[in-house]
Amino acid sequence: MLSKEDTRRLAQLERQLQREDPDFCARMGGGNFSVSTTHRPALPLFIIAAVIMITAVVLAAVQWWIASAVVAAWATVTAVAAVVRMRRARTRL
């Protein structure tokens, strides 16, 4: 069993090889790469969630309660997606 440091280093080497020689990786792996090599940061999702939540507050201020509740739920789902993405990015390192 590999240590955490060895696992991290192996993942780093795999990413580097994928960037430098994708043809070799495709031949050795059967051309099946389901894991994306690009990692998008979670910060834009947090910003979007904040903007959506501000919209919910504005809708509540004008007493559009149903619309406000729907938009607040949307903001919550977006914030949870950002947290999940951030946690997955931490476990990959």
Rank of each mutant, 00 (worst) to 15 (best):
M1Y: 12
L2V: 13
L2H: 08
S3H: 09
S3F: 12
K4Y: 02
K4F: 14
E5N: 01
E5F: 10
D6Q: 15
D6I: 11
D6Y: 12
R8Q: 01
R9D: 07
L10Y: 12
A11K: 14
Q12C: 13
Q12S: 13
L17I: 15
L17A: 15
Q18P: 11
Q18F: 04
Q18H: 13
D21R: 14
D21S: 11
D23H: 15
D23G: 11
F24S: 10
F24Y: 14
F24K: 06
A26F: 03
R27E: 07
R27P: 05
R27M: 11
M28Y: 06
G29Y: 13
G31M: 06
G31C: 05
N32R: 14
N32E: 12
N32W: 14
F33Q: 15
S34F: 02
S34D: 12
T37D: 11
T37P: 12
H39S: 11
P41C: 02
A42H: 05
A42L: 00
A42K: 02
L43K: 13
L43V: 10
P44N: 07
F46T: 00
F46K: 04
I47R: 09
I47H: 05
I47W: 03
I48F: 00
I48Q: 07
A49V: 08
A49Y: 02
V51A: 08
M53G: 03
I54K: 02
T55P: 06
T55V: 10
T55D: 04
A56W: 07
A56I: 10
A56Y: 00
V58L: 15
V58F: 06
L59R: 01
A60N: 03
A60C: 09
A61P: 04
A61I: 13
A61Y: 12
A61G: 15
V62R: 09
Q63T: 08
Q63S: 11
Q63N: 14
W64I: 09
W65K: 01
W65Y: 06
I66L: 08
A67D: 15
S68N: 05
A69F: 09
V70M: 12
V70I: 10
V71Y: 01
V71C: 04
A73G: 14
W74C: 13
T76N: 03
V77A: 11
V77T: 13
T78Y: 02
T78L: 13
V80L: 05
V80A: 09
V80K: 07
A82M: 00
V84W: 00
V84A: 03
V84M: 04
V84Q: 05
M86C: 04
M86A: 08
M86P: 00
M86N: 03
R87K: 07
R88L: 08
A89G: 11
A89D: 11
R90T: 08
T91C: 09
T91H: 10
T91F: 08
R92N: 00
L93P: 12
L93K: 13
L93M: 07
